[in-house]
Nucleic acid binder design. Structure first.
Length: 216
DNA sequence: GACCAGGCACATC
DNA sequence: GATGTGCATGGT
């Protein structure tokens, strides 16, 4: 089996086991973008509380965040942790999008993936995973999102070397799978679900893992 | 009480 | 360049 076949085999096994994940769990592009910041190193359940607070106060949009005082944002997103840092990140991102795209998601959509990615990465507080999450889940670009779980999966299945970089692992997926945003969407979501369910740091190899047949 | 969660920037060596 | 640290709430 080549790498692409192995990746598809893993994908199908995860899909059979967990079913479709229907990511991203957000209703609008702006909610997805905001959620991508809030979920940094944070359990999604805590993020939901923060998003709910923003929504109930009418601040769940780029334009409103740009207008709202940073201390108010920080207070509303408190449940998601790192609230001072994330409030600053949300303000930076929002002011960038207002200044360059008038906060208009349709204008964002007309820009090339490469240019958008480098623009997002230039914003303080947005790293590779957050930028790629926005590109894939808010803008449906065929960009594979790598995260801590992807590393665990790839290393434990000997798909990549231990000290691989983000971009190297990303290339492993994108160069061996069809260029398909729907596939990348579902695959990343399934990897996260696998990680949450089985692939904890403390149990590197879990006997009940759905991939633990001939893939470990 | 320890450990973890859908990261990132920055300091220091 | 690689290694370490602060950020912070809430669930298990």
């Amino acid at each position: 089996m080549n790498i692409g076949q192995r990746l598809l085999k893993i994908y199908k096994r995860l899909l059979d086991y967990f079913g479709t994940q229907n990511w991203w769990p957000g209703e609008t592009e702006e909610e997805i973008i905001i959620g991508a910041i809030l979920t940094q190193n944070t359990n999604w359940r805590n993020v939901e509380k923060a998003i709910s607070n923003l929504k109930n106060n009418g601040v769940l949009s780029i334009r409103e965040i740009d207008k709202t005082d940073i201390s108010t944002i920080a207070e509303l997103i408190k449940p998601s942790g790192y609230f001072n840092q994330k409030a600053k990140k949300l303000k930076k991102l929002s002011s960038f999008l207002m200044e360059h795209y008038d906060g208009d998601m349709d204008k964002l959509k007309s820009v090339s993936t490469e240019r958008l990615r480098s623009e997002l990465l230039s914003i303080n507080g947005i790293g590779a995973e957050t930028a790629d999450s926005i590109l894939l889940y808010a803008l449906e670009r065929p960009v594979f999102v790598v995260d801590a779980y992807s590393f665990r999966l790839a290393i434990r299945h000997n798909l990549i070397w231990e000290d691989a970089t983000y971009e190297e692992l990303q290339e492993l997926f994108t160069q061996n799978l069809p260029r398909d945003s729907s596939l990348y969407n579902e695959y990343h979501a399934l990897i996260v679900q696998l990680g949450k369910s089985f692939c904890k740091r403390k149990n590197p190899i879990c006997s009940s893992c759905p991939l633990n047949f001939d893939l470990h």
